[in-house]
Design a protein around this nucleic acid. Structure first.
Lengths: 138, 138
DNA sequence: TTCGATACGCACCAAAAGGAGAGTGTTGCA
DNA sequence: TGCAACACTCTCCTTTTGGTGCGTATCGAA
């Protein structure tokens, strides 16, 4: 799992010089993570995974609590990163739909663990928060 | 995996009325996800998972590129949510260290899939971005 | 003739995220 | 006397995130 960091650490041990190519890959992985580890991205990903192909408004309704602006932005970024395909049907009124790519489905599967964690442990998190607040106050 | 949503959908089908208790759980899961699906949280989680117990400055160095302010904030929130334990050794100069709890280790394991995805597919994401840009421009 | 349907774009604004740099408190060492 | 060490905190500032509401295109239906 942490092959890149380990390789970098080994190189670091050998020469104190981290070659720029590894740094580039590191930063790319980080950038991808930062992009993708986003609330709306996760929610849209899950909506598409569950419902297959969705239209714009439909997607927004299923995700819930997202503004049109953020939905547009999130979907555009996901399209740019190759997670969804956007298909425009040139009819009136306009009809656009979104489907996960294989890459998107893979990411969705990867996030599955985090969803499971949240569903399993949300009570523990709540308890921890209460305990923390009491420690702070009392 | 999507037990809550499915249960809610079923209830919705039956009565058009979603009971407040399920809504509360839903929103809690969402809140936990939103909190935890954060760039710095993921990075700190990984640093602690790999290195075990870490001190403040050490943790910041390993994560890399994080300001003291954000490191403090992230660690406090993780402590509040029961992901890390903060131990203060009352010596001079001060010595504070951070360790993952069981809950934190579980979350780290859950995120493992996302790290693997990023390491596996970052080249595909880059390619998709290039293609997207070319489509936009050309 | 005007309204509704769809998938946005745009402008304006508030709030939060995040960075840089200075300050703090105590002790041991030079 | 004065600096270094650590783990912060505080202030000031810029950037990003996110919300609201209005505009737009076109056609069919009322």
């Amino acid at each position: 799992m942490h092959a890149i960091r380990e390789a970098m650490a080994a190189m670091h041990r050998r020469s104190e010089e981290i070659p720029p190519v590894s740094k580039a890959v590191e930063s790319l992985v980080r950038q991808v993570i930062a992009q993708v580890a986003d609330k709306w991205t996760m929610l849209v990903l899950e909506a598409l995974e569950e419902h297959g192909t969705l239209r714009f408004t439909e997607c927004g309704r299923i995700v819930g609590g997202i503004s049109q602006k953020m939905l547009t932005k999130t979907l555009r970024e996901m399209e740019r990163d190759g997670l969804v395909v956007r298909t425009v049907h040139p009819v009136i009124p306009p009809h656009v739909d979104y489907t996960l790519t294989e890459l998107g489905r893979e990411l969705s599967a990867a996030f599955c663990g985090v969803w499971t964690w949240a569903e399993t442990y949300h009570a523990e998190v709540s308890a921890a928060r209460r305990a923390f607040r009491e420690r702070e106050e009392g």
